[in-house]
Computed example of a mutant assay.
Amino acid sequence: MEYLEVNRANWNARVPVHVGSDFYDVTGFVAGRSRLRPFEREEVGDVSGRRLAHLQCHFGLDTLSWARLGAEVTGLDFSDAAIEQAAAIAAKCGVPAAFVTADVYDAVEALGAATFDIVYTGFGALVWLPDLARWAETVAALLKPGGFLYLAEFHPFADIMDDATGTTVAYDYFNHGPHVWEEPHTYTGGEILDHQTSVQFQHGIGDVVTAVSGAGLRVEFLHEHDHTLFQRYPTLVADEGEYRFPEGSPKIPLMYSLRASAGGAGPAGSAGGMTSR
């Protein structure tokens, strides 16, 4: 199966559903709401005047959230429908931003060999990529010396637990796929999709760190988080827009964030050394 064209058709079908969904709340975003999570803003730091590339940006709400904080942003996604919506939302918000349609592996050429202070990749991106080493090499080529990658992702450990409670191992952590899914609806609900097939790939934490370090980037930190952005399991409890296991119950990592710097002097305010929490 040609994963790229299958997934492109699937995501082009998702775009109008997502734009109209309560999950993304485009109306609230245009009115000024940010899509970034507090820990992302804290871990990335001040972006004022810094060039930021957002790979796999979907229709650009996270990208534009960084722009509202002062970054000079460029968003890239393989879905032409998503990029069209991103440009329209940017214009509606009056936020300067550039958006480019391209596969992430073609990002260096598509962005004209430009380099950036920050390369950002957000939630739900890596499962669409078969080759993490190639992705990390692309990131490294986009970074200025002293710039950094910031990745915020759903934790792969959460995907091996049972769907009912999230407390029992039910799936193979090392089964990288490809995994072919037939799903009539996207994760925001809404109308039935015209293209329902998607192809995904599972990557462990070790795969991510190995790819990043293998591309010559220095890992500054890897933070694991005990909450997520949606009700991944029925047992999770909503807590001010986050979802956690109930108080007193065992917890597993549900999200993680990683920052890694390019060669040269480390970025100002970097954590220094690899840490975990």
Rank of each mutant, 00 (worst) to 15 (best):
E84W: 08
D80H: 12
A88N: 03
T27I: 07
T63Q: 01
L55I: 05
E43Q: 15
L69C: 07
D62C: 04
L55R: 04
S21I: 06
S65K: 13
E72S: 14
V47F: 05
A81E: 15
I83V: 15
V119L: 11
F23L: 14
A97Y: 09
A82F: 03
V108W: 11
E72R: 14
E109L: 11
E84D: 14
E42T: 08
V47L: 12
Y105G: 12
A113F: 12
C93A: 15
D106K: 09
A98F: 01
P38D: 04
A53H: 00
H58P: 04
L61S: 00
W66F: 10
G32E: 05
L36P: 00
E109Q: 15
A71W: 05
F39R: 11
G94L: 07
A114D: 07
T115R: 15
Q56D: 04
D106P: 04
A91P: 01
E84Q: 13
L61E: 02
G94M: 11
P38H: 02
L36K: 03
F59P: 00
H58N: 15
R35E: 14
F59T: 03
G112E: 07
L76G: 00
G94Y: 07
D77Y: 09
G70V: 08
A81N: 08
G20M: 08
G45W: 03
G94F: 10
G112Y: 09
L55H: 05
G32H: 05
R50G: 02
G20V: 09
G49D: 13
F78V: 04
H54N: 15
T74S: 14
I89H: 02
S34A: 05
A110Y: 01
A113G: 09
A102G: 04
T74K: 02
L61C: 02
T101N: 05
G32M: 07
A90E: 05
E72W: 06
E72H: 14
A71Y: 02
R37T: 00
D25K: 06
A102H: 03
I83E: 01
A114L: 08
A91V: 08
D117Y: 01
A87M: 04
S79W: 03
L64E: 02
L36H: 02
T63Y: 01
G32Y: 07
T27W: 10
R35S: 15
F78G: 03
F116E: 00
S79T: 06
Q56E: 10
V104K: 06
A107M: 10
V26P: 06
Y105Q: 10
V47A: 07
T101G: 05
S65A: 15
R68Q: 13
S21V: 06
A88L: 06
T101K: 12
S79A: 12
R37K: 12
A102L: 03
A97W: 09
L36A: 02
G60P: 00
R35D: 11
D80S: 14
C93T: 13
I89T: 04
A82S: 13
G32D: 03
D62Y: 00
G32N: 05
T115C: 09
D106W: 11
P96K: 07
G20T: 08
G49H: 13
H54S: 13
G45F: 03
W66K: 04
S79G: 11
Y105I: 11
A114P: 00
C93G: 14
A86Q: 01
G20Q: 13
R51E: 15
